[in-house]
């Protein structure tokens, strides 16, 4: 008896010279919610399609509930996919859509009716049985898609960017809905997205993918605070980048100006890229409030709804700094930007 509901072992998908999935090894536990996060072309969707049975690996083994499923078509796998477009059958009503998978499994009609009604309650769409997909909003359609997949009680739910076609408010609402359903029903899931916010909020673990490989797989907070690579760090959120050279114990920018920076660990000599999240900078007018500090001039202030973003020029460097309350600083004001050394990450 396997602990994992899904195991991928050195799974590979290659079209001629193009490697879409490059030796991916990962396991998903029962009841676990794992997200594959990455930019387009990183292989996350291909990996999901391999699990769903829409593509077949050119190497490696896929096991679902301990059983190898290589070569098994989608209709003979115990997985259910929620597609990006919802992929509802346009000529069938909501009830017929949800019942489809049960009919294919030859579930008796009475039980189908009962389970469809129950599922409509769960996704908060009671009374929508006889609607056609064209008569519903995008968010409602995605709920039906969710219900259609959940109703067959698959071993594993597969989400293929199901929120990416929705507008922001709906996206957040449905995201919370999925999280609630996961907590209530305890299904196992693999979720694919390019939105790191979705990944962090929904998942037990997140796998960041790039060029067909998994760069790092960890709990969301670990991933955010201790990224294993420059790619993971930059993909997890916006950042300031400082290109510097280290030589003779001093850190200089590319123009040769001395930067009074101290890092937790000393840096070896050579060129480095230092990164810093905009929210970790502190602005003050006279005295620095953290150990690393630069004198800057405000070049632009952006209002971004829930916060303000200050664009700063410091010697040859440009920094962004997010603060929640508006400061009494206008464009051209002098300011001191400071931050903790521990908030800075260096890559070379």
């Amino acid at each position: 008896m396997s602990e994992s509901i899904l195991e991928l072992e050195r799974v590979r998908l290659q079209y001629g010279p193009v490697v879409a999935v490059d030796d991916v090894t990962v396991a998903v536990g029962r009841g676990e919610f794992v997200t594959l996060l990455g930019p387009s072309g990183s292989g996350k969707t291909s990996t999901l399609r391999l699990v769903g049975g829409f593509e077949h690996p050119t190497g490696g083994v896929i096991r679902i509930a301990g059983r190898p499923v290589n070569g098994l078509p989608a209709n003979r796998r115990d997985t259910a996919t929620i597609f990006q477009s919802g992929a509802l059958f346009p000529h069938k009503t909501v009830a017929e859509n949800i019942a489809y998978g049960l009919r294919m499994r030859r579930v008796p009609a009475a039980e189908i009716a009962r389970r469809v009604a129950e599922m409509l309650e769960i996704v908060a769409l009671p009374g929508f049985e006889h609607r056609y997909p064209a008569e519903m909003s995008g968010g409602q359609r995605q709920r039906v898609a969710l219900a259609r997949s959940l109703v067959v009680r698959p071993s594993l739910l597969l989400f293929d960017e199901p929120l990416s076609a929705l507008d922001l408010a709906l996206k957040l609402q449905l995201r919370a809905e999925i999280k609630r359903l996961h907590a209530e029903l305890g299904f196992s899931a693999v979720f694919v997205t390019h939105d790191q916010g979705e990944a962090l909020s929904l998942s037990d673990r997140v796998a960041v993918m790039q060029k067909g490989r998994i760069e790092q797989i960890d709990r969301p907070d670990t991933l955010y605070n201790r990224p294993a690579s420059e790619f993971v760090y930059t993909f997890m959120g916006e950042s300031n980048r400082l290109d510097v050279t280290v030589g003779g114990g001093a850190i200089r920018d590319l123009q040769g100006h001395l930067l009074p920076l101290t890092l937790e660990d000393g840096l070896a000599e050579g060129a480095w890229r230092l990164y810093l999240r905009p929210s970790r900078l502190h602005l003050s007018e006279h005295e620095p409030v953290r150990s690393n500090a630069l004198r800057c001039t405000v070049s632009m202030v952006e209002f971004l709804g829930d916060h303000f973003r200050y664009h700063l020029a410091c010697h040859g460097l440009r920094l962004m700094c997010d603060v929640s309350a508006k400061l009494g600083l206008s464009e051209g004001s002098d300011v001191i930007a400071s931050w903790d050394g521990a908030d800075m990450r260096a890559y070379r």
Binding site: T79, Q84, F89
Partner: peptide, 27 residues
């Protein structure tokens, strides 16, 4: 035809012939 709709049918347990009869033909 939306490829995802056909895949959804396979995914929910319908074989190629059932998918053609149930999903493709009506469309």
């Amino acid at each position: 035809l939306d490829r995802q709709v056909l895949e959804a049918s396979r995914d929910l347990g319908a074989g190629p012939f059932t998918t053609f009869r149930e999903i493709v033909l009506p469309e």
